[in-house]
């Protein structure tokens, strides 16, 4: 399965010199002058060794954390101009470890938007089918699900918000290889069928290649290089990228 190619599409998220500096436990710049323009309906993977600032960068995109400097535009509008709850519905984030709330699968799906959604005919079926889960799972207790199923429910739940961008923070790191492949296929499918812009964080460059699209390679909060995933990791332009591929940077 290949990611949706849309070279003529508009930029949905533009970043210019964004950075984030934390002061605890020590003062440290974890995202450093990051600039990149993301086009809509594309798959992007942010790849890098642990501690390279991948997740920190992702959390700036939906304002879960505040940037210390730079400009971040969503549809050419500074993200600060959006009501934060609205921004987060339009730029959804799925965490590395899925958290499902007490209740049922369907109450989780309706979490963002209230009970009126639950009562819509075929509501659960529609969103569960998006993530390849059967409709009869709707009434299940989330605690009875496998981690892979939980991750798929978390993905479905974020789709209910009607996002334009889906941020995925290491979505397969807690899964076995089989379940990981299922999620990878699902990510490509969501991009292709729903036209979602997807920005996924991964420490695994092979996964980035499997997902296709564009990869951005990050080290110590710096964007080292970017390009089509297959090309970037088979023929890296920077020494650091080459060292990462060889497993010298972890």
């Amino acid at each position: 399965m290949k990611a949706l190619e849309n070279t003529n599409s508009n930029h949905i998220l533009k970043t210019a010199d964004i950075s984030r500096t934390i002061t605890r436990p020590e003062t440290k710049t974890i995202v450093d002058s990051f600039s990149y323009d993301f086009k809509e309906k594309q798959i992007y993977t942010i790849v890098g060794p642990s501690g390279s600032g991948k997740t920190s960068l992702l959390r700036l995109f939906n304002r879960l954390d505040e940037k210390s400097g730079g400009t971040l535009l969503f549809h050419n509008e500074p993200i600060e101009n959006y009501k934060v709850t609205e921004l987060r519905r339009r730029i959804a984030l799925v965490f590395q470890i899925p958290h499902l709330f007490e209740g049922t699968v369907v109450s989780n799906l309706a979490y963002c938007c209230g009970d009126s959604f639950v009562n819509q005919l075929g509501f659960a079926e529609k969103y569960l089918s998006h993530v390849g889960l059967p409709a009869n799972m709707a009434e299940r207790d989330p605690n009875s699900l496998s981690v892979g199923q939980k991750q798929r429910v978390a993905l479905a739940r974020s789709l209910v918000q009607g996002p334009e961008i889906l941020l995925l923070d290491e979505p397969t790191s807690a899964l076995d290889p089989g379940a990981s492949r299922t999620i990878e296929e699902l990510i490509v499918k969501l991009n292709r069928e729903l036209g979602l812009t997807i920005i996924a964080v991964t420490h695994n460059f092979e996964q980035a290649v499997r997902l296709g699209g564009i990869s951005l390679f990050l080290v110590d909060g710096h964007l080292i290089e970017s390009g089509p995933s297959q090309e970037l990791f088979s023929n890296p332009g920077e020494e650091l990228t080459g060292r990462f591929i060889k497993g010298e940077l972890r």
Partner: peptide, 13 residues
């Protein structure tokens, strides 16, 4: 933290 930030990410105040 995860539960709280999940709720925030789902557009809750």
């Amino acid at each position: 933290r995860l539960a709280v930030e999940t709720a925030l990410s789902l557009g809750k105040s």
